[in-house]
Simulated scan of single mutants.
Amino acid sequence: MSGLAQFSAEVQAEVARVREVVSALHAELPRWGLVVWTAGNVSQRVAGADLFVIKPSGVTYDELTPESMVVCDLDGNLVDGDRSPSSDTAAHAYVYRNMPEVGGVVHTHSTYATAWAARAEPVPCVLTMMADEFGGDIPIGPFALIGDDSIGQGIVETLKGSRSPAVLMRNHGPFTIGKDAKAAVKAAVMVEEVARTVHISRQLGEPLPIAHEHIDSLYDRYQNVYGR
């Protein structure tokens, strides 16, 4: 038995639901100006099975549908779908294998965040929004080549034990994680916003850092009190 037929009806129904979710969330990337052409990808883990859904490779955002999303196992092997998985699939799979709390992964080449990645410089926590969302600086991950799980290793190495849901992979661009794909997309939007704002601030002078105790207080409030 191969493909999704080896899984229960419940898992197959969850796969169909996640395909809908991931397809819809891909529309958020061009909407917020985070991608060009076919670059970028969103994935989400499938509850109840060692599977995730991800964008197919080389397909424009206008052509994406739930049916075009592909399903992979946690080793990055194609389980179901008519197209090749994203070229970043091995990185996503490595994150899911090594960070079981992560339910969604996003990668973009958004302009300002990628500009910081090209300089291998963390975005300093100089905005209350950054303290809220990231709990500190947005870190830089190591340089890694596309094609195997080297990028995934760099993401996990950088983010394990970090409060940040985002890493700027050196010379490449941002990867974000979350409890699901929607949370990871939100982090991708926020990374670009703060990278842009801090860049503009530096054109005016040196941004003022926020004290660590205030970062901790802001992060705790936003994550545990705000909106609840």
Rank of each mutant, 00 (worst) to 15 (best):
A39M: 13
Q203C: 11
S2V: 10
D137Q: 07
L145P: 08
R83C: 06
S84T: 14
A117L: 12
G33E: 10
A181W: 06
M190I: 15
I54A: 01
D216C: 00
V71A: 10
H107Q: 12
S217I: 00
G58F: 07
K55Y: 01
G48Q: 00
S87A: 15
N171H: 01
A91R: 13
Y96I: 11
L159A: 02
I151G: 04
I146E: 05
S201Y: 10
F143A: 10
A113V: 07
S162G: 00
A27S: 14
M99R: 07
R19T: 03
P207E: 08
T89M: 12
G40M: 02
S8T: 07
A5Y: 15
N171K: 00
L218V: 09
M1N: 00
E121T: 15
P124Y: 08
A187L: 03
G76D: 00
R31E: 01
A118E: 13
A90S: 13
D75P: 10
R31N: 07
N98I: 11
D80N: 08
L29A: 01
T176A: 03
V126A: 06
F7H: 03
G81F: 10
D88S: 12
S23M: 05
Y94C: 11
G3C: 10
P139G: 12
R17T: 07
F52Y: 06
V46S: 03
V35N: 00
R45M: 02
R19K: 15
P207S: 10
Q153K: 15
Q6P: 04
M129H: 15
G147M: 15
A115C: 15
S217R: 05
G81D: 13
N41V: 03
A211N: 15
G76C: 09
G48S: 00
S68Q: 12
G173S: 09
A120V: 04
D180R: 05
M190L: 14
A188I: 05
